[in-house]
Design a protein around this nucleic acid. Structure first.
Lengths: 257, 257
DNA sequence: GCCAACGGTTCACTATTATCACCATCGGCA
DNA sequence: TGCCGATGGTGATAATAGTGAACCGTTGGC
């Protein structure tokens, strides 16, 4: 079904930071012919999945997704569950908590909460989380098809801080460790002086649907703190997994007291 | 792009009341071959737009829509605007207010609020609003392609109450009146003893994106009440239209004091 | 007033997708 | 028990669909 693959590929280029894209630019990004690109966009437009800015002629996502997201949420209320769980996690750990779902190129934040205290990590919920540079990304890769990881490593990885790991083999090792441990602790990978501890939540088929994580200043990173956060993140992960009909992975189960 | 048409057609059968559908049933509903249906579903699944219940083997919408809906909302924050405006409308009129967006077969509620008082109309936000039986539906049809109306009238219309209008010509007349007036007042069409007054909000190209409405018990329907509600609904409509980059239609503009 | 880039379109060419007949499996029912 | 009719799922050929280089008209910068 190559037509569908191309269609979905096109959709994946629309992001919060680039929500409107012109025809030529989109064709270039997707490495497709302009004519093909346009035909797909027009087709999607007929079904309200794409709209066009009448002035700039740029294309943007349509209202159809609003509708389907509501239907999806009616079946599997992941946003609702995640919001609750993130609140609980933030209250327990007194650190910033956030949950995200997978998309082709990154994780998208669906819920977040910062605690009431002096120094906290602030999160921009519209910013996609790159797989290789975040704890959430590593655990997501660890509990997904190996193809996703390998496709990611084909292209050179972006350095978000001086400490971002961009060596493919090192990333593979991190993913392997996350798979073994059921969680991952990442430091300075996405933002300097921030440590993230994440665990995935799983679909019924055992693949990761997304990840839940705690982000804290590295200055507060002690063994006791990590131990405490790890247990709470694992519990939060298990809670969401169960709620969406998944089976909690043994490596996560054993982290919970 | 027939493949895309078929794909989107399949997606349109997933509704809050029927969020999981088996292969044979879906193929029958869409009047497609089982093999074709399955290939499309598998393709969508690869991109996380469809998931399968491992036990019942039924298909449901995937998490991809969550992500795209967030991107869409980042561009055109219609849900956020609608939520605010519905609150304002409810507070002003002291009646139930709700906003909805168009989908292929009905309108989907994206925001609603009931006022604090004795007798109010209660709304189930998961229930799709049929075009022909609601004030919102009539105004949505009035400010959309005539094809949508004609396709709807091809099939026999469903009677939701004893008073639901199901005669095609009568529905055409109602739509024409809504187009002329910029609003529509519907009584007993969807629920007995409820009157709905709706106005559309428009995209930049002049077509309706959705509708905003007030629902009240028919017992409170007086000329002054209707007049007051009409003005507020028109103002709310104009507010949303402007916020999403549309141009307020003259017939709606003239309703605003 | 040129050039380069844009959005959009065309039509000969070529690839993809549909269909039917098929299989394995499940759950009732006698 | 074994049959029936339903389900999910599959594969090879026939039929239909999608592709893309080259094109047009416009816009905006230099």
């Amino acid at each position: 079904m190559k037509t569908i693959d191309k269609t979905m590929r096109l959709l994946s280029f629309f992001t919060p930071s680039q929500p409107e894209i012109g025809l030529s630019e989109l064709a270039r990004m997707a490495e497709m012919d302009k004519a093909t690109t346009r035909r797909i966009l027009v087709s999607l437009g007929k079904h309200h999945f794409i709209e066009q800015n009448q002035i700039t002629k740029a294309y943007r996502l349509g209202s159809g997704f609003l509708h389907l997201a509501r239907v999806r949420e009616a079946t599997t209320p992941i946003t609702a569950i995640a919001t609750q769980t993130v609140e609980w996690l933030c209250d327990c750990t007194r650190e910033t908590a956030h949950a995200s779902v997978g998309s082709p190129n990154a994780l998208i934040t669906i819920a977040h909460k910062e605690p009431q205290r002096g120094t906290v990590v602030m999160i921009d919920p519209t910013e996609p989380l790159p797989f290789h540079a975040t704890a959430s990304g590593i655990v997501f890769l660890a509990f997904n098809d190996a193809d996703l990881l390998e496709n990611l490593l084909k292209k050179p990885l972006k350095k978000h801080t001086d400490h971002t790991e961009i060596d493919p083999d090192a990333v593979r090792a991190r993913v392997a460790r996350a798979r073994r441990d059921g969680y991952y602790l990442n430091e300075h990978g996405f933002e300097s002086d921030v440590a993230g501890l994440a665990a995935p939540y799983l679909n019924a088929d055992g693949t990761a649907a997304g990840a839940i994580a705690v982000a804290m200043p590295t200055t507060r990173k002690t063994d006791e703190q990590i131990h405490m956060v790890k247990q709470h993140v694992a519990a939060a992960s298990a809670r969401i997994t169960t709620a969406i009909g998944g089976v909690v992975h043994p490596s996560i189960q054993k982290l919970i007291v």
